[in-house]
């Protein structure tokens, strides 16, 4: 059990209010009709699933219902912060992406 901060509501709430949205900043191939099956399969199904820091999407399911990004350590559940998608992207890029 952990507490997440929703950057839209500016509120700290219990995990039960939120829905997990998986790995953040995954890039959809820009030409789905022409990429090979491996590339498309990789986008659809493959996951980094890191043990350690993870950039992930959460939605405030029983609150404002908006998505935001969280940097959480999957080995300890420590949370480094939450941001709106645009703000989170800046921090993510500044760090050089997922490690």
């Amino acid at each position: 059990m952990f507490v997440l901060f929703c950057p839209h509501c500016q509120e700290k709430r219990e995990e039960e209010e939120f829905g997990y949205g998986g790995e953040a900043f995954r890039v959809r191939p820009s030409t789905p009709d022409t990429v090979d099956d491996e590339t498309w399969g990789d986008y659809l199904f493959m996951r980094s699933n890191p043990k350690g820091w993870n950039w992930e999407l959460w939605s405030h399911a029983t609150g404002c219902r908006k998505f935001f990004v969280v940097k959480r350590n999957t080995a300890t559940n420590a949370i480094a912060g939450s941001w709106t998608l645009a703000e989170g992207r800046k921090v993510y890029d500044a760090e050089g992406g997922a490690q």
Binding site: M1, E15, E56, R72, T74, T76
Partner: peptide, 9 residues
Amino acid sequence: YTSYTQRGS
């Protein structure tokens, strides 16, 4: 959520 903590909520 994904986790390696061997404990759940």
